[in-house]
Design a binder for these strands. Structure first.
Lengths: 162, 162
DNA sequence: TAATAACGGATAAAATATATCCGTTATTAT
DNA sequence: ATAATAACGGATATATTTTATCCGTTATTA
């Protein structure tokens, strides 16, 4: 029961992208360098973000990734689901239908109570993730990032757009 | 991001145990037969339930597993955590500290905003699971199990305690 | 005393997550 | 035009986790 590492990577990437000048883009290679993660693998994840409509892509020199919409309109859930999918964390294999007491599948009118409770919990989890937007994360980042790191980051970014 | 199959198995097993006469017990072998799942592997999971204090165990002939407390006092969360543990589904690897902009670890006063949002969502998920008790699941089972299956189950169980 | 059953440890097998590589296409700066 | 850049998709490799089995030990009971 663990979210893939790609979730952490891509959410951080999007937070960084949210702070970029309007028409700027960062390549997978540069993003990977910034966070010190495997470039090729991060690229795969960013492609999923692109498919999910969260980021735009631009090929060629000075190309890369940029946000596809305002940070306010991108939720944490959007990003989590782009990487980890939308299927419920609980997979019901209908074991109630198996074994010596099982009867024909059409006899079961509703999903079993266990599956229903699990799905409800999964739902509130997603609802909670939906409450946080990329804009929220960006503001938290601006407020809480150590000043020294902020300076280093700005310097590093400036070096790219010259 | 998926719960292990063992969660489904053990919750179903506990629901069955909840319906047994007070001093009756069912062995891993019998439980596995009832649900048609691998006996040895189910046994491993039931041992985790035992360690978590959810079921009692009794060795020897006519031994097996029985509930360690009233169904009302066992939550779905208890059972989920017995199998899948209590660690948050999001693992923060502190990538903010890495790369060219990272600064010394002691500069970071709080967990990053992303980790905090993820933990909050994990918390509401657990809170929701805590709301459902084994007694609730038992009642739902009694109400919704097809009559034909109920009869077969009772017959099968009677065959064991003679 | 023989059969049953939990328990713990050691593997083994299967599935999934992580990671790399390569050829293709699109784009841009020179 | 051309060379360099960068996303994209597919194939493949590696690592980790999940699933599953097996076995010896101990406790218990008929």
């Amino acid at each position: 029961m663990r979210l893939s590492e790609g979730v952490e990577w891509t959410v951080h990437c999007c937070t960084l992208l949210a702070g970029l000048p309007p028409d700027a883009a960062l390549s997978a290679k540069k993003l990977a360098e910034f966070f010190d993660v495997p470039p090729d693998y991060l690229a795969k994840h960013m492609q999923q973000m692109s498919k999910a409509g969260i980021v735009n892509t631009k090929k060629g020199p000075n190309g890369g990734y940029s946000l596809a919409k305002p940070a306010r309109d991108i939720t944490l859930l959007d990003m989590v689901e782009a990487i980890d999918g939308r299927v419920c964390s609980f997979k019901c294999t209908e074991i109630r239908q198996r074994g010596p007491s099982g009867v024909s599948p059409c006899s079961y009118k509703t999903p079993c109570g266990i599956a229903r409770a699990m799905r409800k919990a999964d739902q509130v989890w997603r609802d909670e993730l939906r409450k946080t937007t990329l804009a929220d994360l960006q503001i938290i980042g601006l407020r809480e990032t150590p000043p020294e790191q902020m300076n280093k980051a700005i310097t590093w970014l400036k070096g790219l757009f010259t």
